[in-house]
Simulated scan of single mutants.
Amino acid sequence: MLQGIGFVLDNSARKELEQRKDHFLGMASHELKTPITSLKLQTQLLRKQLAKQDIHNVDTALSRMESQLNTVIRLVEELLDLSKIQAGKLEYAQETVNLGDVLQEVVEIVQQTQTTHTIAVEHAGHPPFLVGDKARLGQMLLNLISNAIKYSPEADRVEVDIKTSEEVVTLSVRDYGISIPREQREKIFERFYRAVAPHQRAFPGLGMGLYIVSEIVKHHRGTITVESERGKGSTFHVTLPRKSP
């Protein structure tokens, strides 16, 4: 009986600790977002003003600053989304979305900042219309493509394929980078999990991107899986129903 009481108290304390941690993540993310966004705006303004004065080497330095700021902003936004997911407060719109158009926008944004890789896109089947949240689907695509680039530093190409049937849209993102061991392929969608070996810790990130992607896919009643072969890279497959229930 005493063991049962001890277990209940221990479980209750663990839940309270989890709630405090999630609350802290949400609060910290919210507090960080405002000054970082302001700093980015000031950097952009400074860049424009100095460009008019034709000062050499300034544009390159400010571009690098802006790139690093974008990285920090993305991390903060992921922390904020994470806290909302844990609280069940991540909001989704319901609208008709052309996933092909969303993909094109994401690819253009990524190609402006990532010059090391070419992103090749292929479409097949019907136009990829579905019912969902355009912004969240864009976030899903951005995370998958950015991950593909990040984990294939020795390659120069990422392939994205969209196939559309009457019932579903299937998206595949393929890289030619490091592979994911079979025993880790289910765990990579867990919160804070990173499928990298100790000697690969140079890869940045907190292990939130794929967790958020999987939550977005799950909310759209879809599935996400990964295939990976040693020395040949990885391919993530996302299948989304075209109609809302």
Rank of each mutant, 00 (worst) to 15 (best):
S214V: 00
P35D: 14
T113C: 02
V196Q: 14
M208A: 03
H237K: 14
I180K: 06
E77T: 07
T115R: 08
F203V: 09
T164H: 07
R194C: 10
L69Y: 03
Y151E: 06
S152G: 15
E77Y: 00
A87W: 07
V217Q: 00
Q94M: 00
H199F: 10
L9I: 11
E215T: 04
G88E: 05
G100T: 06
E95C: 02
Q111P: 04
Y92D: 01
L39H: 07
A195D: 12
A195S: 13
A135E: 14
L45W: 12
D81G: 07
T118W: 04
R74A: 09
G138C: 07
S29E: 05
V102Y: 00
L46G: 09
V121I: 13
D10R: 04
Q139P: 01
L171C: 10
L80P: 02
R182F: 10
E227A: 13
L99Y: 00
S228N: 04
D10P: 01
M65N: 13
R242P: 06
M208F: 07
V213A: 10
D81I: 03
T43S: 13
D161N: 10
T116W: 03
L80H: 13
R230P: 02
Q42D: 12
S83N: 08
P204Y: 03
H23V: 01
A202W: 08
Y151F: 15
F24E: 14
D81Y: 12
V160K: 02
N70M: 09
L99S: 05
E166R: 07
G205H: 05
H220Q: 12
S228A: 06
Q139F: 06
P128K: 01
K52A: 11
R185I: 02
Y211T: 00
S214A: 13
D22N: 12
R201F: 09
L137H: 03
R221G: 01
H126L: 14
M1H: 14
L2A: 10
S214K: 12
I216L: 06
I224P: 08
R230I: 03
K89C: 04
L32R: 05
E16S: 12
S29L: 07
V72Y: 14
R157P: 02
V196N: 15
M1Y: 09
M208Y: 11
G125W: 12
R201Q: 10
A61D: 08
I216D: 05
A93S: 13
Q184P: 01
L46R: 08
F189P: 07
L62P: 13
G4S: 14
K232S: 09
T34Q: 15
I5E: 15
Q114K: 04
D54M: 11
S12W: 14
L82W: 06
E227T: 09
T34N: 11
I178A: 06
N11M: 09
L171V: 15
V169E: 02
R194F: 08
G205D: 07
G209Q: 02
V160M: 04
N147H: 05
R14K: 01
Q19K: 08
P198I: 00
K40V: 03
V213L: 08
I85D: 12
L75K: 05
T43G: 04
G231M: 04
R20L: 13
E186F: 03
L75D: 15
H237E: 08
K33C: 00
S228R: 02
R64D: 14
K33R: 13
R185D: 03
G207V: 00
T170M: 09
K15P: 01
I119Q: 00
